[in-house]
Design a protein around this nucleic acid. Structure first.
Length: 631
RNA sequence: GGCCCCGUGGCGCAAUUGAAUAGCGCAUCAGAUUUCGGCUCUGAGGGUUACAGGUUUGAAUCCUGUCGGGGUCACCA
């Protein structure tokens, strides 16, 4: 209705005002809840232009609409606002249209440009945690929302399967894994550990030994034993140490951290890890075998985690493939003088003219860094899918700067598609106790958390009815659906851009603005539909206020989806559904359906309920959430 | 310190991107079921939108400054 009204006012401006007005000053908004009306025109811009009073302008528009369209019954001018009241015919017509659509709210499939959405993109050196859950649910939902909005969508991830961090796990496993009586080191099969968990364990193991070795070095330095260290390092240490003199606690802490970093760089462990990386890039067979084996374990572990999450990918990229392309790009840029080389052989890009810094693109030992491979990956993707109209990177906001730099570099290299790259930057997930910190062991493991919410859902469901005639299997499926639905909804209902708080107790709540609350409404509707048949709508119906309120919410569905797609914000879908369900519950509480004697009214209420149910189901699916027919 | 992001009832979040009296959930208090699923619904209390200026017919939203929180400034990813 909004679009039609705008169009009429614009096109008939001469008839209404006696002159043409610009389209953009015709502004509409939702009518306030406590005011009578279904659509509101904001009159201030028009008033300003025509130098007339709001009352006069409002009356002109209102009179015209009432007498020239069949959808507007009456109007009222309040201040600078024109509140329009839609007619019963309008609402009946809308309900019929909505009811007739196969996938109400969705756009024509593949009617818009193809988009690639990247999410998850884990490192293969540790298991997934709560932060990944937000990332993955978010990216997956955005992909589904874009698809529903008419885009062809390719879901992808980049597997961060190479780099110094991977070598750390490999080295630690090789060096520190105990052997069993058969002389085997630890593997998923001989320990029963999930592959990603096992590898993660050795990453931690590396860090422990790494820090220990560094501290031993510092102890030596404190005793003035500097044999075997480079002069530069010794001087740097002495400088930092001297600075500590007489400083406050905070400054000393900072200096100690710097000293620790300095010492870390002197450890044999790091040197060996670096050597391993060089060997890996040179495709040393033994290193490659170890790498393949350990990555294989991790992939198996991830596979089961993804399955539990209910997400999938259309195309997977590996950095072990794309970093070569990245290196080529770096060389290309060097030849074109877009990049430059320092004396030690390292290659950099100077972005100071763009208000950014200098950025390393290739180490002096010739190995690739994060930026190198991201350049290669981007090029690879647009080569694979030349029609891509957009590339969305779902990555946390701690990498805002990284993506700014990446996109700028790609532009400088002359790729036209660089402008279609977009960083979907989301906020960190905090716990009530503060930040998640691996060193303090406060990281919430993804597998553990999912198992926990399902368990809680089970406890809550078991002592309620409606599952008596279900098999054990069905009950498990149901609890899975409720627990995961609650968790996904909890993580998705907040604006992605914002940092959010994860409260474990609240995430498994069933009341209020939660996934299960919405699932419950769906189950109720299914129960209604089992009791009564839906037939076609009568031509003569009069809606009551609660029915119109519900119909209005139902009417908002396409707009909610469109905005969610445009803003890449699944939270808008979540919030919309919550509003829809509140309106439904209000309706449900205020009218009787099977107690209604007028057959046409009873049928209309069933049709209304049916359509609410359809939207809940299809929109919840966009968020990756299933709905139960009983719960 | 430079750059970037964020401050909304006790807590967690909204606000159509500049519009009416800033909404909702939790929590608190008071109610509702001879009725289709009470994981529901109705009502009440609770706010100077961190603070101070400015722009505008109109500011939580835009600009400037202050305070507070976070991120980032690696030959880590």
């Amino acid at each position: 209705m909004e679009q039609e009204i705008k169009k009429i006012v614009f096109e008939k401006a001469i008839e209404i005002f006696g002159q043409i007005i610009p389209e953009k000053i015709i502004q509409t908004q939702k009518t306030r809840g406590d005011v009578k009306g279904d659509l509101t025109l904001v009159l201030f811009p028009i008033v300003g232009m025509l130098k007339s009073s709001p009352q006069e302008i409002g009356n002109k528009i209102g009179d015209f609409l009432v007498s020239n369209t069949q959808w507007i019954d009456s109007y009222e001018v309040a201040g600078g606002f024109l509140n329009l009241v839609a007619s019963q015919e309008y609402w009946l017509n809308r309900l019929k249209e909505i009811n007739a659509e196969a996938e109400y709210g969705f756009a024509q499939p593949n009617s818009k440009i193809p988009m690639m959405v990247e999410y998850s993109s884990p490192n293969t050196n540790k298991p997934l945690h709560l932060g990944h859950l937000r990332n993955i649910f978010l990216g997956h939902a955005v992909a589904e929302i874009l698809k529903a909005n008419g885009h062809e969508v390719i879901k992808t991830q980049i597997i961060n399967d190479r780099g110094i961090h991977i070598c750390k796990s490999m080295l630690a496993w090789e060096r520190f894994s105990p052997e069993n009586d058969k002389g085997e080191k630890e593997t998923p099969s001989n320990t029963g550990l999930k592959g990603d968990k096992l590898v993660g364990k050795y990453y931690v193991e590396f860090d422990k030994n790494f820090v220990r070795e560094a501290k031993e070095i510092i102890a030596k330095w404190e005793d003035s034993e500097f044999d075997g260290f480079e002069n530069e390092v010794v001087l740097e240490y002495q400088k930092l140490h001297a600075l500590k003199e007489g400083k406050d606690e905070k400054t000393i802490k900072g200096l100690d951290a710097k000293i620790l970093d300095l010492a870390k760089n002197q450890t044999g462990l790091l040197r060996d890890a670096k050597e391993m990386l060089v060997k890996w890039e040179a495709r040393d067979p033994q290193t490659y075998l170890l790498w393949n084996t350990m990555n294989g374990w991790v992939y198996e572990g991830f596979e089961s985690t993804y399955k539990m999450m209910g997400v999938e990918f259309d195309k997977v990229y590996y950095e072990s493939d794309t970093f070569i392309l990245g290196k080529d790009l770096v060389m290309e840029g060097l030849e074109k003088d877009i990049f430059y080389q320092k004396e030690d052989g390292s290659i950099w890009v100077d972005l100071t003219a763009d208000g950014l810094d200098e950025k390393l693109l290739l180490r002096s030992d010739g190995t690739a860094v994060y930026m190198t491979q991201d350049m290669g990956t981007a090029k690879d993707r647009f080569a694979d899918f030349p029609n891509l109209g957009g590339m969305i990177y779902t990555v946390g906001n701690e990498q805002d700067y990284h993506f700014k730099v990446l996109f700028l570099i790609l532009q400088k290299l002359g790729f036209a598609w660089a402008n279609n790259c977009h960083h979907l930057s989301y906020g960190m997930v905090d716990l009530p106790s503060g930040k998640m910190k691996s060193r303090e062991g406060t990281v919430v493991d993804a597998d553990d958390l999912m198992a926990e919410v399902v368990q809680k859902a089970k406890e809550a469901t078991l002592d309620r009815g409606h599952i008596a005639d279900m098999s054990e299997n069905e009950v498990d499926t149901l609890c899975n659906l409720i627990g995961m639905g609650g968790l996904k909804y909890y993580l998705l209902k907040v604006d992605p851009k914002k940092r959010m708080l994860f409260d474990p107790a609240e995430s498994i709540e069933l009341n209020g603005n939660t996934g299960p609350f919405i699932q419950y409404a769906y189950a109720r509707i299914q129960s209604l539909l089992r009791k009564g048949e839906v037939s076609s709508l009568s031509q003569e119906l009069v809606f009551s206020d609660v029915e119109i309120e519900l119909l209005k919410k139902l009417n908002d569905a396409p707009k909610a989806l469109e905005e969610a797609a445009q803003q890449l914000a699944p939270s808008l879908i979540a919030n919309y559904l919550f509003e829809l369900v509140k309106a439904f519950n209000h309706f449900y509480q205020n009218v009787t359906i099977f107690g209604e004697e007028v057959e046409d009214l009873k049928n209309m209420r069933l049709v209304l309920s049916d359509n609410v149910g359809k939207v809940i189901k299809s929109y919840f699916n966009l968020l990756g959430i299933q709905v139960p027919s009983k719960m």
